[in-house]
Design a protein around this nucleic acid. Structure first.
Lengths: 227, 227
DNA sequence: CTCCATAATTATCACTTGATCACTTTATAC
DNA sequence: GTATAAAGTGATCAAGTGATAATTATGGAG
């Protein structure tokens, strides 16, 4: 705040005094500008354009990053990490609240943090560029969110609290998560006119998930009664 | 057939006779090679590499396409059109078959045609590059597949055959389609180890859709009874 | 005020890329 | 055979790219 963004010189034109920033601050600014630029034009975007946005010369980037790939990886980290809230796990574990409500709140927060052009575009671009980072992220989602959903749902239905998660259960959970992510894609990448709000999409997705998961558990319970 | 693929000279090295192809054939070959190359490395891939794959010099491409963008658009068209089967509509309309079965078959075919790295990567890359083409495609899906699903399902439940499609119904249908597409993404772009088959994913997705849609329709029917 | 570590710049290189044009080779019609 | 339309090549350009090295300017410590 209070500081005009890097670029503009105070007043006159000629001297254009160069302002120094701490290494820490500069790294942060560069990654931020790089993320914005790459999100817009892809990772093919030039280092010169990034420097231009910062009002800085291009070789300066190489003072803080070994090469373009290094910068891109820093962008990965920033984009993925700064949009992940560590508090989510606590919220999802709070059994004083119905599972449905817990996950509805979670997905509202998740959408608020991630359903924007910058995050979605970089996430999909990263998946296309090198799947590794996205593999890691999907693993995170599966372990921390989807398996949690399955287990907490089971507990609420009075089933035994087993760590084992069935393929079919995971399939349902991924169907939910994938469907919502695709909503984000249509909305913020394709920029299609939204015929429903995010809240509705989340609510509808959860309805589908809980309705069917319950059916399946009920049927399983009947089967075990018969045995 | 019987013709060794363009590249290799018949036998010896020195003369490397240049083979001529009809313009039509050459255009087809170029687009095919371009699609393969772009699918692998992104639309930043070079025209020289495409030419190399064909065993041809790079300027030749400019005989058949005005510029790189023109080539990319031709790739769009080929990839999208050649993987769309016009017969699908007939299959989806055949009321002698249960809706569930019709759409299960459709999604099997759809996955067979589209769930491969080339199609998925180019489709997502196209969405990131310029949303327009993907907007058009999503419109196609919505009009020809999803609305069909909704209406045929209604008919099977004995409801009136109205052309009007509710926002909520569409939301469910997109949740289904998006979830399945995301399965393709995880499977063929991220190359994650599949813990379920495509068939299972489709079957589970449809289970979720039909279970909930039926619930909603039943509830709507009760409400109208009360009025 | 002076010093000096270091933030930032200037100049530049080697290379790739999309694109153009004049030229050569091929197949086909006569 | 020979003429000819068109398929294909070679040489080359201008622009833009990531990256390096030498140089300059800044601001805090003493």
């Amino acid at each position: 705040m209070a500081e005009a963004d890097s670029k503009s010189p105070p007043k006159g034109a000629p001297p254009t005094k160069r302002r120094r920033k701490s290494a820490e601050q500069r790294v942060h600014d560069i990654v931020e500008a790089a993320a914005d630029h790459f999100a817009e034009v892809g990772f093919g975007g030039s280092t010169r354009e990034i420097a231009k946005r910062l009002g800085v010369t291009q070789p300066l980037l190489y003072r803080y990053f070994p090469d373009k790939d290094g910068l891109i990886e820093a962008v990965y980290r920033t984009v993925y990490l700064e949009s992940w809230n560590p508090d989510w796990d606590a919220g999802l574990s709070d059994r004083s609240v119905p599972v449905r409500d817990r996950f509805e709140k979670f997905y509202h927060d998740y959408a608020k943090a991630n359903f924007n052009p910058r995050w979605l575009r970089i996430a999909y671009m990263a998946g296309l560029r090198d799947a590794e980072i996205n593999e890691w992220y999907n693993h995170l989602i599966e372990e921390l969110i989807l398996k949690k959903l399955i287990q907490e749902h089971r507990v609420e239905l009075g089933m035994e609290d087993s760590a084992f998660v069935d393929t079919k259960e995971l399939s349902f959970a991924w169907q939910l998560h994938g469907g919502l992510l695709h909503f984000g894609w249509r909305h913020h990448v394709l920029e299609l006119a939204p015929c429903e709000t995010v809240e509705d999409a989340i609510s509808n997705g959860l309805d589908m998930y809980f309705a069917l998961a319950k059916n399946v558990y009920d049927r399983a319970a009947q089967n075990s009664d018969m045995s």
